[in-house]
Amino acid sequence: MNIFRLAGDISHLLAIFILLIKIWRSRSCAGISGKSQVLFGMVFLTRYLDLFTSFISVYNTVMKVIFILATLVTIYLVFFKFRATYDSNNDTFRAELLVIPIAGLAVLVNHEFSLFEILWTFSIYLESVSIMPQLYMISKTGEAETITSHYLFALGLYRGLYIVNWVWRYYTEQFYDWIAIVAGVVQTLLYCDFFYLYITKVIKGKEMSLPA
């Protein structure tokens, strides 16, 4: 564990709770992509199967359980409790066009050809693009509530901090995992455009809106 990874994990946790609190307080999931949340749910469920096979630390176990439960609660709020507020007309990204090729890629390109390892690889590849339905939804409607943009910023920050963590680990432990690194860099790049808008608009106190 190093400070960059810890800060990244906290940022990730913060993102998930910002979203939950936004939905709960406003009693609405307007502007939130349910598809992205389902993809994140798949990511956590396929990656954290090792909860049952390997113990790393109390921290690791607790965080995994929180990530899984919080995401399942978010999915429940979007598709059940506050379903009437779910903007499904604008959540039209074809998520299956991501999941199917990624499943194929995970079978072909992995560290080891075993069930758990392929599911882990699938989750790493899937996480890298899971935010795409959300970003697509924002570009389609041309706007995002300020709190939704805080959510996206915290999520992007988490990815950025993980890259710094990998650089740190490479030099201090000679540890690197090229599957995680390649997918992590792709994921971080997806946020770049958003980061620019966030810094130029939201921090200056304006609503985020995109040029048509």
Binding site: D50, N60, K64, H111, E112, E117, Y162, D177, A180
Partner: peptide, 10 residues
């Protein structure tokens, strides 16, 4: 399995 590929990150 996990003895070979170590995934200690979240």
């Amino acid at each position: 399995r996990y003895s070979f590929v170590d995934h200690d990150e979240l």
